[in-house]
């Protein structure tokens, strides 16, 4: 019997719970945690969700196993139909995409993400680029952000390079306010912006101003852990909750879907050893 789960499985469960039943949900490439969250949600609380796979644009695929590259026929297995690139982005532009999963090498307090370039004005480090994130961050109705690299350890010189920053060097994906602090509502976009951020240290929501706010911690993280790894003044909800672990059935499902443990490539080595007890009274399906 499964008695505990890993950090990856905790994050997948937390991300899966952000998905509503009946939503059309899309993930990008290189996003195994988001891919697994979507497959878990589709088999638990969101059975009517429309799952569209990044890169292949297959509708409701049932891949035999997760691959380390997303545009692979493995990932397209079992899809009931396939969209083409224009259809996928058109439906988002028309307001049909309920949720998109996005991430960044920098994520700021308004939920803007940078996956384009570090350093201004000169490119000090070229990041891979955001794919369609720039468009979908505006068009998708709701966005779930995630990063498994929130913790900012001190380097040899005692400095921290934050993942959660005051402001991004380049805004690839729009959050709740632009670089000048102008609220996204002014732009009249289809979508409402980031709803949650799931990190390896906690779960965040966004307040009425559109500012990120700590909402929940893991059983093994503290407010102090989050504070010292966050590059801006932390806002915190009144009553911080504890992130619930997945059910045994969900853990079993994740392990079945990802036998090659591709999602662990996203997790830092120090976090791979974290374990969380599963207190689950529900009967395990056969």
């Amino acid at each position: 019997m499964i008695a505990s789960c890993t950090l990856g499985e905790m994050m997948i469960a937390a991300m899966a719970r952000t998905i509503g039943d009946g939503e059309l949900v899309f993930h990008g490439f290189g996003s195994p945690l988001a891919q697994l969250a979507m497959h878990v949600a589709k088999r638990s609380q969101a059975r009517r969700m429309v799952l569209i796979a990044g890169a292949t644009y297959g509708v409701d695929p049932a891949p035999r196993f997760l691959t380390p590259t997303t545009n692979d026929w493995v990932m397209d297995c079992g899809a009931s139909s396939s969209l083409d690139i224009e259809e996928l982005f058109d439906l988002a532009a028309a307001g049909r995409m309920g949720r998109m999963f996005l991430s960044g090498l920098q994520i700021d307090r308004w939920g803007n993400c940078n996956v384009t370039t570090l350093g201004t004005p000169r490119t000090a480090m070229k990041l891979p680029g955001g794919g369609g994130g720039g468009n979908l961050s505006c068009d998708a109705q709701r966005v779930t952000l995630w990063t498994p690299a929130h913790r900012a350890e001190r380097d040899a010189k005692g400095r921290r390079r934050f993942r959660l920053v005051e402001s991004c060097d380049f805004i690839t994906n729009l959050g709740h306010r632009d670089a000048d602090g102008r609220p996204r509502q002014d732009y009249g976009h289809q979508g409402n912006g980031p709803e949650y951020l799931v990190t390896e240290l906690g779960l965040f929501d966004f307040d009425a101003e559109g500012h990120m706010r700590l909402a929940a911690l893991y059983p093994d993280t503290s407010l102090g852990d989050v504070q010292e790894s966050t590059g801006f003044a932390l806002r915190v909800v009144n009553c911080v909750e504890t992130i619930a672990p997945p059910t045994r059935a969900e853990v079993k499902l994740i392990r079945l879907l990802d036998p090659l443990k591709i999602h662990e490539k996203e997790i830092r080595p120090a976090d791979l050893v974290r374990r969380f007890d599963i207190v689950d009274t529900r009967k395990e399906p056969a």
């Binding site: 690139i85 982005f89 468009n135 505006c138």
Partner: peptide
Amino acid sequence: CCYTLVQQLRAAIQGLPFMPIRSLRGT
């Protein structure tokens, strides 16, 4: 960005000088 590219290609395909998008403003 993917949809920007799609719209730019579609303009060329249709022999039009441009296509509009709503997204990307603010990035």
